[in-house]
Simulated assay, not measured.
Amino acid sequence: MMSNLFSVFDPSSSIFNISLNWLSTFLGLLMMPSLYWLMPSRYHIFWNNIMMNLHKEFKILLSPAGTNGSSFIFVSLFSMILFNNFMGLFPYIFTSTSHLTLTLTLALPLWLSFMLFGWINNTQHMFTHLIPQGTPAILMPFMVCIETISNIIRPGTLAVRLTANMIAGHLLLTLLGNTGNSLTILLTLLIMVQIALLVLESAVAMIQAYVFAVLSTLYSSEVN
């Protein structure tokens, strides 16, 4: 019996009181040996095309002032989040991105490193970001407060956005799945709705990984 509706997302698999749910985050390491094959497969060519397109897009967002190679950080971030989002769609695999433990661990160090780099190396540039161009003098103190607050809550919004979107779809799928026993007549309809929701969740998994990576790239471009 669940203590509350969200307890289905709590880690539960363990051996000797050691939680094994978070090991799902490292399942991608099992696929790494195939990357060293002499002849790449169609899967690798397709994945490399996606990565190269993302790399080009992130380079544009980072602008020429960005550090060379920094776009690969965000490409790797996108790959990790996308993989974990998709792993959560399989039965009996723990969705690590539905917990703030993981999403905040990704968002907070990124944001903190951007802020430290910006305020130490480009202090004047960071101050100019606090007041949008064309702001009347009477509104400047209020704009500084608003911009400061919006800047501080950025890692929280990044983490909560990803977590909430992952939880929402999984929660709906769980609730509909639990009503299957009482809706034997409408079972076919229920299965069709579940499949439609699963397709939607697959799209959300891709979109949220892309949104997280793009917003992190934009936050990085602002400090240069």
Rank of each mutant, 00 (worst) to 15 (best):
A213M: 05
I149A: 13
L186F: 13
P33Y: 07
N85Q: 03
L77T: 07
M31N: 06
L186S: 07
V160M: 13
E147R: 14
L218H: 02
A65Q: 15
L82H: 08
N49W: 11
T188R: 12
L110D: 02
I50E: 02
L100Q: 08
M143T: 05
T179E: 07
L104N: 02
L102I: 12
A209L: 06
I18M: 11
L82A: 10
S14Y: 05
S98A: 14
Y92P: 03
Q208R: 12
I120L: 15
L190H: 05
T163I: 03
T97Q: 08
W111L: 02
S24P: 03
T157K: 15
F127P: 01
N84F: 06
L190T: 02
F16D: 08
L38R: 12
G177H: 06
G156A: 11
T97L: 07
T128M: 13
W47G: 02
L112H: 04
M126N: 12
V75N: 07
F16H: 08
F212P: 01
I60S: 07
I45K: 15
S221F: 02
Y210D: 00
M2R: 13
F90Y: 08
H129Y: 10
P64D: 03
N151L: 15
V144I: 15
T101P: 08
L162N: 03
I146N: 05
L23A: 14
L198A: 03
L172W: 00
I185V: 14
M52P: 03
V144D: 00
L30G: 01
T67W: 09
M192A: 11
I146L: 15
S220C: 15
V8E: 02
L35H: 09
F86T: 09
W111M: 10
T67G: 06
I50N: 01
F90C: 04
T163K: 12
M166V: 08
L172N: 07
T101A: 15
L171D: 00
S220W: 15
L130S: 04
L23M: 12
V211P: 04
Y43C: 05
M1E: 05
R154F: 14
L197A: 01
D10V: 10
N178E: 13
I15Y: 10
L35E: 08
L54Q: 02
M87T: 07
A196R: 02
A209I: 04
P11G: 09
I149M: 12
L190M: 04
L100V: 10
